[in-house]
């Protein structure tokens, strides 16, 4: 059976600019999908490297999100904490094609059907 390399998680218009939506993964880490004010899409594990705050609920500005718990700024492209804070959250490869959002299946569900994205 052929399984596509990319996992279709729905149309882009389900996420308003400057906001994020969540994608729980059974047995794995919840994923947060972000749409910046300038319409770039990114996906991260939904856990701040600091105290596991839900990054999906933070304020999005430029290419970063500010964690709602303690205001760490996390890069949406690298998952790394900015400024003097140190830490990194896994990035889930994402692409947008024909108005739909795709996540790299392997990064969400491992080859054996096992979720792989784990927070640091």
């Amino acid at each position: 059976m052929m399984i596509g390399e990319w996992l279709d998680v729905g149309p882009v218009d389900q996420i308003a600019p400057g906001s994020a939506r969540t994608l729980p993964v059974q047995g794995g880490e919840e994923i947060a999908i972000f749409r910046t004010i300038n319409n770039a899409f990114h996906a991260l594990v939904n856990k701040c490297p600091h105290k596991q705050g839900p990054l999906s609920q933070g304020i999005i500005h430029g290419g970063a999100v500010t964690c709602p718990l303690h205001n760490w700024n996390i890069s949406l492209t690298t998952g790394e904490a900015q400024g003097d804070d140190k830490g990194c959250v896994p990035v889930v490869p994402l692409k947008v094609d024909a108005g739909r959002i795709y996540l790299l299946r392997e990064a969400v569900i491992g080859p054996g059907g096992k979720p792989v994205a784990k927070a640091a």
Partner: peptide
């Protein structure tokens, strides 16, 4: 309503004894 709902849910297909 979208603020309170997940975009979708992923339930990995579990292969027996995979």
């Amino acid at each position: 309503a979208e603020l309170h709902q997940h975009l979708a849910e992923v339930r990995p297909f579990q292969l027996e004894n995979a």
